[in-house]
Nucleic acid binder design. Structure first.
Length: 577
RNA sequence: GGCCCCGUAGCUCAGCUGGAUAGAGCAGCUGACUUCUAAUCAGCAGGCCACAGGUUCGAAUCCUGUCGGGGUCACCA
């Protein structure tokens, strides 16, 4: 049930009636009409801006429209009053029974309460992490992994058909570097001194790979030219790295549906087909790019390259797809990859990148726009950097010092639940401070524990009440719930469905985290009232009817918290310790 | 220099794609526990929404410019 959507359709219906009656002129667009919770609860339960939005196109006074609309809206049984306020807002009060009846609905549907059919089964591909297969994932990847995973779950909850996908960059020069690095570790395993030259990957994580190579090849590859072993070791090492990546992702609870190999695009005609598709639209040409504006690289020289006319689709400059020697640039397989996604029939694409890839947004969007003739939208979400703090001090990472904090380090120290929640309590495009000490703190300062504590408290109260089943609680007489604090909680629960749709529409899972914090806050306040006035407790001696209603209410809170945490990939706690 | 993101309470951040008197948490002060786990709650105080214009019934939100912070910038991925 999405009360806001339901009442909005009532508003639209009444507006159409006013149009039919001649009160409103024909041909008005109701697209900008909204039904929202008012900022101030004193204004009522719902507010619509219909009168103000329509006043100008209808050439009428807002109040006249509002009053005509108000008269019709109260015909609906759920609307108990409709008052014109301020510049032309229409404040609606809703029959408490609507909110009370919702509780039985929540208890019946369980974690599925709030699921939406907004997505209508549209196929969405969410690509995230996509880290180079050259080593373990580090903290920088963690945020994108959590964000992409939660966004995918959110879209699924909102009725989309979601595919979670990881693009393995195993076709470029960096996997050659990986192979050479692994070869040195192989030599080391065979008793030779490794030469980890500048530019190779120095990490210890390649030592086991060297050992494994020794086990497989003995010393047969020692002192052989690179051409003899590069391809084999590249494959071997890449697979070993992907095993680490999969394990890292699993420790965070991140699951992928598809691992898509870049290498599989080469030699199969896929890149050629994608470029040919662009060529057929007249978007491929041979030319020379102008030097970048502003600062000129010292070694700049004009070069004739095969270019994609991305400026036709909103990019700033055209982009090379072929190097001057005729080989593909990194951009070419990226185009082919997205072409493949389009051909697989996705209705929408989402890419989750790190902020350092911000420069590729326009060209990628241009490519998808061109390849799909503008029919498949691509949204690119950039995750800003994570700043690590230890004991309040910023912790600097450097590649040279090899002191990169790994995803596995974070998960081992604070656990997947806290890691995920903290990463999601910030908008994706805002930088995030991650403090190890604070993440482990069990206080209100730490929203994870605040939300989990609310869930645990519900479990505790219900345990004292003998753990009534949801089926039993559904039978309670919820019309007994009438105090202002109880009604406030019910109204917060009623926002859940709407929040899911808004968060999904905007691709912003952090909204779920903030909602859960608000819901937990309403619950904590209500529970505290029972300490001041025993008559406001959930479990009451000698009043089984009211007790059952209140137990059903708080169970509904636990259900929604559980569902929300489920979207975020965080396990609800039944008790705190 | 071009492009992208950000600028909201002392600090960390929300603000529902333009709505009513801009909200939380932390820090500060004042109160509430022989508890349905106080790991909590209530209250007070705290604001030129970076700045200047513009768009309109109405702007923290949209457009332009300026300042400040971060990212990125021709065959690397």
């Amino acid at each position: 049930m999405n009360l806001f959507a339901e009442i909005k359709s009532v508003v639209i219906e009444k507006l159409e009636a006013l149009t039919a009656a001649g009160t409103l002129p024909a041909g008005l667009s109701f697209a900008n009409v909204t039904v929202e919770p008012p900022r101030d609860a004193l204004h009522g339960d719902l507010a619509t801006n219909a009168a103000m939005v329509l006043a100008k196109p209808a050439k009428m006074k807002p109040r006249d429209i509002a009053e005509a609309l108000a008269a019709l809206l109260t015909d609906d049984a759920r609307v108990t009053s409709a008052d014109v306020a301020g510049p032309g807002f229409l404040n609606l009060r809703i029959d408490p029974a609507v909110f009370q009846d919702m509780l039985a609905d929540i208890l019946a549907k369980g974690n599925d309460f709030g699921r939406s059919d907004m997505g209508a089964g549209r196929k969405v591909n969410v690509e995230y992490v996509s880290a180079n297969p050259t080593g373990p994932l580090h903290v920088g990847h963690t945020r994108g992994a959590v964000f992409g995973d939660a966004l995918s779950s959110l879209l699924d909850f909102a009725g989309y058909n979601v595919t979670r996908e990881y693009y393995i960059n195993d076709g470029g020069a960096q996997v050659d570097v990986l192979a050479r690095s692994a070869y040195e570790r192989y030599r080391e395993a065979c008793g030779h001194a490794p030469e980890i030259k500048e530019g190779l990957y120095p990490g210890d994580y390649l030592k086991p790979v060297g050992e494994a190579l020794k086990a497989k090849y003995g010393d047969s590859l020692i002192d052989r030219p690179e051409s003899d072993w590069l391809a084999d070791i590249r494959l071997f090492a890449t697979e070993a790295m992907m095993d680490i990546v999969r394990s890292d992702l699993a420790s965070l609870g991140v699951k992928m549906d598809v691992f898509f190999s870049e290498k599989a695009l080469y030699g199969t005609g896929k890149i050629e087909a994608a470029i040919a598709s662009l060529d057929a639209k007249g978007l491929i040409y041979s030319g020379t790019l102008a030097p970048p504006k502003g600062k000129l690289p010292e070694d700049w020289e004009a070069r004739e390259q095969t270019l994609f006319r991305s400026t036709e689709h909103g990019d700033d400059v055209d982009r090379p797809v072929q190097k001057s020697d005729g080989s593909w640039t990194y951009f070419a397989p990226d185009i082919a990859y997205h072409y493949d996604k389009i051909e697989r029939g996705f209705d929408e694409l989402i890419d989750v990148f790190g902020a350092d890839h911000g420069g590729y947004v326009k060209r990628m969007k241009a490519a998808v726009s061109a390849l799909s003739d503008g029919k498949v939208p691509l949204d690119i979400k950039l995750c800003q950097l994570v700043r690590l703090f230890k004991d309040g001090e910023p912790f600097k990472m450097s590649k040279r010092a090899n002191n990169f904090i790994l995803l596995s380090d974070v998960v081992e120290q604070v656990g997947p639940d806290v890691t995920r929640f903290v990463m999601l309590t910030r908008k994706n495009d805002a930088p995030l401070d991650f403090d190890f000490k604070k993440a482990l703190e069990q206080s209100k300062d730490n929203p994870v524990f605040y939300v989990q504590y609310a869930h645990a408290r519900v479990c505790s109260v219900l345990k004292k009440a003998g753990n009534p089943t949801d089926a039993t609680l559904q039978q309670a007489d919820f019309s007994l719930l009438t105090t202002p604090a109880e009604m406030a909680l019910l109204k917060k629960l009623a926002e859940w469905s709407r929040l899911v749709e808004l968060a999904a529409k905007h691709h912003e899972p952090h909204r779920v985290a903030f909602y859960l914090f608000d819901l937990a806050s309403e619950f904590h306040a209500l529970q505290h009232l029972g300490k001041v006035d025993p008559g406001l407790r959930f479990n009451l001696d000698g009043n089984p009817a009211l007790s059952a209603a209140r137990q059903g209410m708080i169970r509904a809170v636990a259900v929604v918290i559980s569902a929300g945490l489920g979207i975020l990939g965080v396990t609800p706690a039944n008790e705190m310790r």
